[in-house]
Design a protein around this nucleic acid. Structure first.
Lengths: 341, 341
DNA sequence: ATGAAAGCGCTAACAT
DNA sequence: ATGTTAGCGCTTTCAT
């Protein structure tokens, strides 16, 4: 049978209260008793029962991690890495993570994740864009929550966000510094804050270098997803004659699509066109040339979110703090100096 | 405050025992009392506390899901789909899933997942290949466990496996039925049972059609992973002159690598070379031609494993049942009739 | 068919 | 600094 706190108490000749104090560091215990208790714990291989502890503290020791199924199943290990960051940090904080997905088109009548209904989590982390009606329902549940990489409509809730504007500035400035002026932007729709900010950064960079912003060089819609989007957008841009010498794709998935289009159509990267992405997904090893990009510290997004959530849970305050995680310019093979033919 | 069983008892004018009987269907309760209790539960929005219940039953209501980090982060959403199957089934069985990764090179001295150390799961599901020393440690923990898509060395433990031989037979026979006879096999190493079986099926198919097995047409090593492996293996095969007209790649990731190699080297698929994979991963939409393959029902692997584990947990018997999940031939564009030039 | 009550393993207030 | 003890919310045995 699993040893209990009683066994430890008996073995070390103290009361169960003292054992509890030692386990939780909740009251001063003399060094020698503490050592005796610790020894007993070790020799019995004692672990406090979660359910007993949770029952009396009213906590669950669990944290829910929620994202849409399409995000979870994405080809690029973006959200899975974020999850890993969260799970990793959870270990050291003593929490368990319950991962669940909701449908991309979560309906008002759909069930909330079971751990919310049963209130079997102390808080939840929401990663990526989720339907508004889900957020409303979550809100109504009054659970502490932290959002990663998405700004919920009401903009309360603590968030961990990517510094998208800064990243887009860095990417675009990198191309500018290489001598490019005809720089295209390929992005997603306008309903995700990230796409909006990455476009904003692109425009800001051009402006500060006094390069005119041409709408004909900007394609931003979300009729398609990821690579397919990049491919189609590139087709739209390059089928017209507009002497594009560099492309900033708002994420790596799209950049890979662009790359594919350019290859299929006899344009060399970076000789004819420089290409930079965003995210630094663990791209295909086979990708050639390797992609210059803006690195998003995915693990860090996850760890920061967990820390933030634990703070909220412990402080009971609903601080609506925003953490902006810095990004990094990664120069690889797909960008090079502008050299007109 | 969260309502308790007491509130329900009070509201419906019965004892908490009766409420418990209703909740768990553990003793006959008269229809009218049952209805009264049910009404009270609903009106109070009562949910039994997991920790209280777990404390008295000695269960945790949790199941651990373990895989190596590289599997979890794989480009192809293979294991993530399996997880989703498990998680889905867990919902209806009333379990929560604690997902955690271990390192691909898990060392003897590494910590076991926390939920095992703390015994905070009633059982675990292990997906994909994991280090032997991990399995030994898991074994020592005496937790019920089920393996998915991997046969642990000692071969005890219940397993949910893919019918690899059957799948490889179907794939190879498909190529044979199209008139191909010079069929190459590209696989992984020999230390994963799946690779071994897929090769076995390939050979069996050739034999039953009286096509000689040529070792020169077989490449099976795991110096590289996934696509890269396929690419390199294809290079090895096609740089010699051996009139290969069809390739069976032991998984889709490798098949995509093969496809890439063939494209880069002016071979058309399927006109010059037919290509079939295995797994039916949600391949790149941009893949052209679309890949014929053997579909592995990934969600089903996950759901079956959970059902099996729950059985083991409930029956307390360590039945070492093996479930062989059937696969399906999916014919798409990458395979066509052999037509010599 | 229903109820009373013991007790699961722990925390924390109170007592010493 | 350490011990005693009352619960936390539930399941389950034993009465009725």
């Amino acid at each position: 049978m699993k040893p209990t706190i009683k066994d430890v108490a008996k073995k070390s000749g103290v009361s169960i209260a003292t054992v509890s104090f030692v386990i939780n560091n909740s009251k001063p215990v003399s060094v020698e008793t503490r050592n005796r208790v610790l020894k007993a714990i070790k020799s019995l291989n004692f672990r406090p029962s979660n359910s007993a502890r949770d029952l009396v503290t009213g906590k669950t020791g669990n944290i829910g991690f929620i994202l849409t199924d399409d995000h979870f199943l994405r080809t690029e290990p973006f959200y899975t890495r974020i999850f890993l960051g969260t799970e990793f940090e959870a270990r050291s904080e003593g929490y368990y993570i319950l991962l669940t997905t909701i449908k991309r088109d979560f309906k008002e009548t759909d069930n909330l994740p079971r751990f919310i209904i049963d209130r079997n989590v102390d808080g939840v982390i929401v990663a990526g864009k989720v339907p508004h009606c889900f957020i409303e329902r979550l809100s109504a549940s009054n659970l502490p929550a932290v959002f990663i990489d998405y700004i919920p409509p009401k903009n309360d809730y603590p968030m961990v966000l990517i510094d998208n504007i800064q990243g887009a500035l860095m990417a675009t400035n990198h191309l500018i510094s290489l001598g490019h002026t005809n720089i295209a932007f390929i992005g997603g729709g306008t309903e995700h804050p990230s796409w909006v900010d990455r476009l904003k950064g692109y425009k800001q960079a051009l402006e500060s270098s006094n390069i005119p912003i041409k709408n004909s060089l900007i394609v931003a819609n979300d009729k398609f997803q990821g690579r397919q989007n990049g491919f189609n957008s590139a087709k739209m841009l390059f089928s017209k004659k507009n002497n594009i010498t560099a492309v900033f794709a708002a994420n790596d998935a799209m950049a890979i699509g662009v790359l594919k289009y350019l290859r299929d159509n006899g344009k060399r990267v970076p000789q004819d066109v420089s290409l930079i992405g965003f995210d630094d997904i663990e791209a295909d090893l086979m990708l050639s040339p390797t992609l210059s990009t803006i690195r998003v510290p995915k693990l860090e997004l996850g760890t920061e979110a967990l820390k933030l959530l634990v703070n909220v849970i412990k402080s009971k305050k609903s601080l609506s703090k925003k953490i902006l995680v810095p990004v990094e310019l990664i120069i690889r093979e797909s960008t090079s100096i502008y050299s007109p033919k």
